[in-house]
Write a protein that binds this DNA or RNA. Sequence first.
DNA 1: ACAACAATTCAACAACTGTTTAAATGTTCG
DNA 2: CGAACATTTAAACAGTTGTTGAATTGTTGT
Lengths: 107, 107
Amino acid sequence: MTTDILPHAQAAELAETFGLLSDPTRLSIVLSCRDGERSAGEIAQMLGTSPSLTSHHLRLLRGARIVKSERRGKQVFYALADACVRDVLTIMIEHQFTHAHEPAQST
Amino acid sequence: MTTDILPHAQAAELAETFGLLSDPTRLSIVLSCRDGERSAGEIAQMLGTSPSLTSHHLRLLRGARIVKSERRGKQVFYALADACVRDVLTIMIEHQFTHAHEPAQST
DNA sequence: ACAACAATTCAACAACTGTTTAAATGTTCG
DNA sequence: CGAACATTTAAACAGTTGTTGAATTGTTGT
């Protein structure tokens, strides 16, 4: 079943999830949660993005279960939602920066 | 190093790769290669997309080493580029359709 | 060389999406 | 309650991106 072709609708859902990782700012937000939870403000400060924009992206990421959130006092802390997310990031980084410096295929 | 935050430029590269998986049509093309190589024409026929559009997407995917190609006669056969791609797809499908049916987080 | 098939390229249009700015919500403490 | 802080929401603009249709390139066989 895992090797079958996914029906239209499911492929679209999956594509949407990948799409959330396809924006540099939003991906950086996710990556900033890789080594532990961070508050929305910390993330914004780290990346130099406005609190507004950061929050907007965090909402989308939370909606797709890429990150999870927990309020403690005034702050809301964000962390990667599960191991799948961490693994996908790790593998993709490997794919990109480990064996990806051979010249691109032309044929 | 794998748990550190990626610099701006590398995050952008990574985001671009995820972006290639973020379109339903293009993702379906990748998924159609999961159980072995397929010619451009076969893929187009399977998905019901025009040869033109299919080829356009395949070029982008090949450029990012998500698929690799090999011409045999008139046909050009495409396959997943490496295990990383296969793994990312598998994990993401698991993330999406296995433990993703709990109600979305509100806090 | 010509015809038939397979795949690719090109340019233009339409739709989507990230960003910004401003206003609003929620939380703690005096 | 009111002030200060942290985060969120909303609407509008600007830039990006997928799709289409026509023309082009490459390959095989006659």
